[in-house]
């Protein structure tokens, strides 16, 4: 599989970047010891992949499907929030360059703060999110 499949730990989320299935998914808790070391390679990989599509003028073929970004986070600390916002800004940039992408923001039924932070992020990048409530 081209992309990434990073298993979750107690402090860092599971990250799946499956280019053939048009899926990026981040799930779990994010309080990594070094946010930069954890998130930079992920952001780099995402950027490289989408840049390649634009450089090779493959936008039309890419857009036959929609690339899905699933954010299924239970908890993240404030420095992780910064890196999550970097990923979202990247999504916004590539959407503006013509790529078909959608953001799905999951939150637990009991966790109104997680929904609110999704709304903050959505506001920040001026892009609509699809909110999905999960029962827990």
């Amino acid at each position: 599989m081209k992309g990434l499949n990073i298993p979750a730990t107690e402090k860092s989320p599971r990250v799946l970047f499956d280019t053939s299935n048009y899926l990026f998914e981040i799930q779990g808790n994010s309080r990594p010891e070094n946010g930069r070391d954890f998130y930079f390679p992920i952001i780099y990989k995402l950027r490289k992949h989408f840049e390649k599509i634009i450089d090779k003028k493959k936008i039309e073929a890419f857009n036959e499907k929609c690339f899905k970004f699933n954010f299924k986070l239970d908890y993240f600390n404030s420095s992780s929030a910064k890196f999550i916002s970097d990923i979202l800004i990247l999504i916004k940039d590539f959407t503006e360059k013509g790529l078909n992408m959608k953001i799905y923001w999951y939150f637990a039924e009991s966790d109104e703060d997680m929904k609110e932070v999704g709304e903050d992020f959505s506001d920040m990048i001026s892009m609509p999110f699809h909110y999905i409530m999960i029962e827990r």
Partner: peptide, 29 residues
């Protein structure tokens, strides 16, 4: 809340790994 959104987009990560968002998160929470 407004400051939080603005800071998220503009935050720089310090050498110690902080994003300078901690105090804002405390006030927000």
């Amino acid at each position: 809340n407004k400051l939080y959104k603005k800071s998220l987009a503009n935050a720089e990560i310090s050498a110690k790994g902080g994003a300078g968002l901690g105090l804002i998160v405390m006030a927000k929470t």
